[in-house]
Each structure stands twice: as C-alpha cells, then as structure tokens.
Amino acid sequence: MTLNGEPVEFLAEPRQTLLECLRDTLHLTGTKEGCGDGNCGSCCVTLDGNLVTSCLVLGVEAQGRSVTTIEGIARGNDLHPLQKAFIEHAALQCGICTPGFIVAAKALLDAEPAADEERIRLWLANNLCRCTGYDKIVRAVQAAAKEMR
C-alpha cells in the first residue's frame, strides 16, 4: 500500500486490523487506540482519501490502497495549519485524541474548506475528547480553515 505518500510492503495476518498493522508492524504509533470498536475516533486515518476508523478496517483491506496517518500531515518540518492551530488555541490537553481529531478535521477541510461551526461539530461528532470540552477544538479548526482558505 501507499503510506503517507511512500510505498510500503508488509505481511498482515487476516485477523489484524489496519490499526494493529500501523502501530505494531510499521511502528507508526501516532494513530491511537481508545476503544477498538469504532466509537472514539482516536484511530482515524484516511483510506484513499476517505476518513475511516482504522480499528474497523482489516490490514488486508488496505492492500494496494493509499493510507494517510497523523505522521503524514505535516510537510517535512512545517506543521500543517491544523497542527499549528491546535497548539496556538490550546485545543489539546492530554493529547491522546489529538491525532484523530487532526486527521478527521483535515479530511473535512480538504473537502469543504468553507465548513462552518455547525458542520465542523457534526463532522467531528465521531471523535471523543474527555479533556477539553471541545470548545477550543472548534476554535482551532475554524482558525485553521480560515488560514487554509
């Protein structure tokens, strides 16, 4: 498959999820496991551009496809506007849900640069955060959207 723009090859057992392959086989631990059943959004990645929870995708399903993880969001040493905005707007506290939120928010803003607060909240409703109360996450995504436009 293509991982963050580069071709990779690995063996996946039929029962391994894409999340396990990313974390345990490819050692990309930026994608987090919060629940293992698709309800927290911490393991969000994009698969051929579509947002998925990687704990609900089998590793073998990714064969020949393109996966982008949190490790593929920054351009070299330059942080993506979403990453900058999350830091500037204090949109993370413990940070465990942050990779999922950033991957999910990027998928939204890539498709809908003009997303408003209501749309942002609706889109991110699959991602749980227990620290921030979400307020600063919304502000950060709005700020990044403005920056990206």
């Binding site: 631990t29 930026g30 990453q83 830091i87 500037e88 940070g95 990779p99």
Partner: peptide
C-alpha cells in the same frame, strides 16, 4: 505555546501503549 505541542500534534509523543 506548550513545549510538548509539536510532539503531540504530529503523533510523535510516546504514550503508554
């Protein structure tokens, strides 16, 4: 900005698992 900000928005920060 927090000192560990870049690590935590890029997935580099090492958590328990």
């Amino acid at each position: 900005p927090r000192h560990d900000g870049a690590d935590k928005v890029t997935g580099r920060a090492i958590y328990g698992a």
